[in-house]
Structures are given as structure tokens and as C-alpha cells.
Design a protein around this nucleic acid. Structure first.
Lengths: 251, 251
DNA sequence: TTTGAAAGTGTGTTAATGACACACAGCTAA
DNA sequence: TTAGCTGTGTGTCATTAACACACTTTCAAA
């Protein structure tokens, strides 16, 4: 083992992986980035998963998550937040996952625990481009995702839960919306994440009270209805609230 | 490797450990359970850590945490909640940890990521008894803990943070207080955890509004001041609030 | 019987919340 | 030009929660 250690910078750790749940928003629904095994040709069934892979022995978990995301989707330079570790010994034991696993791993039977991360990105900024073992990569509406490979459904569920909790104590949207956006878009984002309707007027009141929005002297153009006021985030206050947190957004 | 796999039920996974941050309360301050390396005799410095060890390949992370806690301290049958994974490649790289590590591990240089758990227990119910490689185990007041071995200070910090967050959305105390307790004791518990004073009357009002306390027809006896009313938790409502959560306890 | 120590209790003020409905601007298509 | 559609934008009121604040009660011990 000590001989191996000399070289460990280059070695994949066979027992630990990272998985990345990337949320995106298209002004309508919340999406999640998934990769496809490309096995549907042979098996008739596609296997979807969130991007993830084994870590190297010389990188931190955070670094591994960033690297893996980049390798599999081309997405770079985003902030990832840890969700937690998932380590059921049978988490990769589904029959339907076996084939993919064999094609992926040098030791397909090794016991792997995974550390999940999540992030929020503007969907349009990131056109995921599959590479490495991902046959394809793309955005899937959360509501339409039914089964994912391995324990990725559980991981997605957990990440979503964390996002719902986070939304109550920190501002969000900065990473999901374009620089200029309307209150309706932000409103819809909150509704998509919490998956329930929120009263429009109360929403506006509360979000404006947070003092994180700067109204612009600009309106939407080209919409088939009254154009709405555009806002941008007040970066200073947004950061302040992000780091301090607030007690309760209260929905 | 496939030969090894046959036997993996019996094998420690060299790359993954669990660590348990156990909080206890003595009606005065918040404590944390720590074990001692017993190396102070030889090195002159004691090394304190929270109980933790490598996992077996056939157990879940949750099971591993329970097992390890039991092996090192005798504490059994408590609910542990995951805090997260810690995986800096140098997390066990301190010079001062080397000696202990060598005595502990078959592969002291292996890269280990750890999954941290935390729990709350009644201090008096658990007189930790050191065993396995723990030379001694005992309760240390949080405030007096300065340096722990490995990255355990960071882990403790993180667990404490999670506890502070949890306290706002779920009732706590059931696992930290005896069956019958006073509001002052509960009050002090909250102050200890949040590490700041809370207004007595507002605290009483809020906690009573939660409907999780049943007043008893009993008072303290033998105290040199007005004896206070005893309460117990209303288990049904407590469980209900535990699982549903509330939006904000608001301190 | 006095003293010290903590328990216990009530009120007024202010801020936040949730429920609720309608008029208007701008576009499109007839 | 007009009618119709779609989404924008706005205010009030009743209820509830948050907060700040001070005095009296009870007991044990000296």
C-alpha cells in the first residue's frame, strides 16, 4: 500500500463517488440535469442518472464534484453545496443498473458511498454537452422525472428537500435568473421550487421588503400583454442576506 | 478483488469512516462526548476526538454510526442524524495525530473520508464507558473544548450549526431532559444551544403555544426558592411537530 | 423574621401575515 | 377601430405573532 500511496494523486478511490444534482429554471418549471447511459439501444430502456463519478485520492470532495460535473457535462465554475452522503450497501444493486455499471467501473461490485451536491444555474447559460461516459446530457423537468438509476431518485429528492429548506432562510434566484427579470418570473420560480401556489400580492410585498431587488427603468418588450417592470438583484444586500440568512421567508 | 468480495461482510472499508457527535445536557451547559487516545502518557499531550471508526462493507452508514458509537462508548439505541461528509485529503494529516492514527489503523496513510452524525442524549442516562481503542470516554462542556484530533473541531462546529438550525423548525428536548422537567430547564437548554440569552416570558409563551408540554400536578421539592411547576412532553404532539416541523421558533 | 434566589405572571405596542378582487395596459386579430 | 385576451399592478383589513418590560410569590436557609 505504501508503494501505491506515492502515486495516489493519480488514483481513483474505488469506494467514494460524488453526484451532482443541478437545478435549472426556464421561467416555467424547475429542471434537473441528467445524463443518459446510452444503453437504450441494447436494452431498450434508457437509464438516466445525475452526473457523478469516483473521486481521486488527492482532491477534496468539493473539488471532485466540480471536476466530475465538468467532465460529464462541460459545466464549469459553479458553486456546489453538499447535500449529504448516501451509503446503502445496495444502492447500486438494481438489476437494471448492472450493465451500465459494468461499462463504467473497473470494479463494478465495489461498495461505493457517494456524496451528493446540488447547485442552481441559469438553464440557458449551460447547454450541457455530454462527454466522458455520458452518452447524452440534458435538462429534464423535475415533474417528469420518474425513475433514475442507482439511488439517484432518493438523492434528487433529498437535494430538492434541501433546496426547499434553503429557500426559507436565504435569498435565491441570483443563479437561476438572468440579470434582468420580472417579479412574475421570480414568483414562478418560488412556486416551482415549493411546488405550490403563492399569493401574488403577498409575494411581491415580502420579496420587496427584503431589499434585495433594484427596480430598473426598463420594461419587457415584445410581450403580448402589458410589459412588466424589470428588476435586478442588489448584489450587496443579496450577499449579505445569503451569508447571514433570515429567519423565515414564511410560505 | 472478486475473491475479496465474497467476504466483504467481514471487511472494514479502508476509505470510509463515521464520526459521532453526541450532545448531552446537564441542566447547565451543553456537553459533547469525547474519547481520549490515552497517548498522553507517552507524548505528554492527550488527543481528544469524537468517537468514530471505519465502516464495514455490508452495513449502511447509519448502521455503522450506531455500531461504532456502541463499540467505543457503550451507548446504544439512540437516534443519529447525518451531518454530512468531510473529505479533505489532509484531514488526518496533522503531525500530532500521526501516532494515534498508526495505533488505530491497518493503513494509517489511506485516504479516508468520514460521514458525521449527531445525536442528543440525556447525559445522566449515558455514562460513557470507554472500550475498543478508546482509552477513556467522557463528557466535555462544549465551551471548554478547544482542539480536537483530525478535523473533529470542524465536524463538531458543523454538527452544532445543524443543531442550531434544527432547533428552529423542530421541537427538541425530549432526548436531552428527564421525563419531568421545568420550563427553566428547557429555557436554559435553548440558551445553551443557541449560546445567547432568550427572553424568559417570550420563551414560555412560545413554547407553551406549541402544545407539546403537559403541565403536571407536581412541583419541584427541596429547592431554596419558589418551586417550579413540572412538565412532561406530550409525546403525540411532539412527534407530530417533529415530523411536520414548524416554520420558525423565532429566536 | 429576614434575606436571597429564582419562579411565575400580564399588557400594551408594533410589525408581519394572509385572505381577498378589480381596473388597466398593451397586444392581436377580426 | 374595436373587442377580446392576457398578464400587470395595486390596497385594505382583520388576525396573529413579536417584542419589550416589572413586579409579586414562594421557599429555604441563616
Amino acid at each position: 500500500m505504501s508503494a501505491e500511496n506515492k502515486n495516489k494523486a493519480l488514483e481513483l478511490n474505488p469506494n467514494v463517488s460524488v453526484d451532482c444534482v443541478i437545478f435549472g429554471f426556464d421561467f416555467d418549471q424547475l429542471h434537473c440535469l441528467v445524463i443518459d447511459s446510452g444503453l437504450s439501444k441494447t436494452t431498450g430502456r434508457s437509464r438516466l442518472a445525475v452526473p457523478g463519478d469516483l473521486i481521486y485520492d488527492n482532491e477534496t470532495l468539493d473539488e471532485a464534484a466540480k471536476r466530475v460535473l465538468k467532465e460529464l457535462t462541460g459545466i464549469d465554475n459553479i458553486y456546489l453545496e453538499q447535500v449529504g452522503a448516501f451509503g446503502d450497501p445496495n444502492r447500486m444493486g438494481k438489476e437494471s443498473d448492472k450493465e451500465w455499471l459494468k461499462s463504467l467501473r473497473a470494479e463494478p461490485d465495489a461498495r461505493v458511498i457517494t456524496v451528493a451536491y446540488f447547485s442552481l444555474v441559469k438553464m440557458n447559460d449551460f447547454n450541457p454537452e455530454a462527454s466522458s461516459f455520458a452518452e447524452s446530457a440534458g435538462w429534464a423537468p423535475i415533474k417528469e422525472i420518474d425513475e433514475l438509476a442507482f439511488d439517484h431518485s432518493e438523492i434528487l429528492e433529498s437535494a430538492l428537500g434541501q433546496l426547499k429548506r434553503k429557500i426559507k432562510i436565504q435569498p435565491i434566484g441570483f443563479n437561476l435568473l438572468p440579470q434582468k427579470f420580472t417579479l412574475s418570473q421570480l414568483h414562478k420560480l418560488y412556486e416551482s421550487i415549493l411546488n405550490k401556489p403563492l399569493d401574488k400580492r403577498n409575494f411581491r410585498r415580502k420579496i420587496l421588503n427584503l431589499q434585495i431587488l433594484t427596480p430598473l427603468n426598463e420594461k419587457q418588450v415584445g410581450v403580448p400583454h402589458k410589459p412588466s417592470q424589470l428588476f435586478e438583484f442588489n448584489e450587496e444586500n443579496y450577499q449579505k442576506l445569503s451569508s447571514e440568512g433570515f429567519d423565515n421567508f414564511g410560505f
